[in-house]
Design a protein around this nucleic acid. Sequence first.
DNA 1: TTTTTATTGTATTTATTTTCACAAAAAATT
DNA 2: AATTTTTTGTGAAAATAAATACAATAAAAA
Lengths: 203, 203
Amino acid sequence: MSLVRSDIGRLLQYKLCLLRFKELGVNTIFSYNLGEAAGVTAVQVRKDFSVYGIKGRKRGGYNIDTLLIELNNIFGNSRKNIVVVGIGNIGKAIIQYNERFVKKNLHIVAGFDIDPSKQNKSYGVPIYPVEKISEVIKNNNVSTAIIAVPFQVAQELCNILISAGIKGILNFAPIILKVPDEIIVDNINLSNKLEGIIYNINL
Amino acid sequence: MSLVRSDIGRLLQYKLCLLRFKELGVNTIFSYNLGEAAGVTAVQVRKDFSVYGIKGRKRGGYNIDTLLIELNNIFGNSRKNIVVVGIGNIGKAIIQYNERFVKKNLHIVAGFDIDPSKQNKSYGVPIYPVEKISEVIKNNNVSTAIIAVPFQVAQELCNILISAGIKGILNFAPIILKVPDEIIVDNINLSNKLEGIIYNINL
DNA sequence: TTTTTATTGTATTTATTTTCACAAAAAATT
DNA sequence: AATTTTTTGTGAAAATAAATACAATAAAAA
């Protein structure tokens, strides 16, 4: 299993900050300003750009439109289809979040649940029985799935997703999924996040 | 702003895995088994334990009950009260998750929202207007808050929370919050998580 | 009892990430 | 036109994290 590199997380944060600056009518930015907004040092910003071959102008800072083009070259801006497995509290919330993902060209195209009563309801995205996972993923060119099911069934659904061709998983189930090396997994364990914060408070 | 150390995240994962093993009736575990379950190497497990002075028995592995006691000594097991600010999609999902947090002695004691219609509804946790933040936090000995509001108002609410005595924040708003050094913040940006996974898939 | 085997515990090495230091460039000032 | 100031860009150093290697120990087998 591969993990998501930390500099990639920073570049995505820069992209987000730059879009906000652009909306405010800013054209040019210094590493110091971007670092301030992104919560990192100015050197970290310049080093990150340096690694990816992104150039500014000495004493002139960086042009925001140019940076956004460079970042789009790195991340691509083609449409990405996503599915959500498990329409409980978290799964439902994520599906209802879809309109914001769409702005980044991330499209939740389907949800899956074993509960037939969930399958009737529309949250703006069609909900299918889990038996349809393979079919829907293949027909919609879906590369990425969000798992939001109880941990007891998470591995089983993970296996089904990978058989169906899923390459990346955002996993909310509190369990470490066993996947082949080439599959990307990122875990969000809310209890552990909270416990980690509380540990650091009391340090 | 302090970040949550990565070895702490691993220790919490070990704790979770150990609880599951215990439920299955396992008494003793080897670093290899725990590493397998937690998604890390056996050496990493032993090294982590070594750093925190946790001892096993040569060739005998680790006693699970002993490990859990040691881990509880590190993390404490006193009751921790938490509030959620913003009862939108994510905030509502988290509140409805409360019963699972309670098992870890994490208690969501209140939610806050500006929308009065949200304040009537009960999701198992009382919802107050944001004007009550300071009062509720002080009366309930709350150390930790979850921010799930639109990014445009996140910093403002963050400031209110800190004035009210909050020491740690789990932030779902897609913005880097400015806080004093002693305040602990952990960010979850769902779009960035997904974009990071997709970047790594196409690498 | 002695030897072999399995496992922990940790010092050392290697790899990765971040910070420091400063030269190079360009704009602003004198 | 020369000087000063500001900011980028990056090699080198420092800090942090992870992997390797192996001694120490205790259980199991001979």
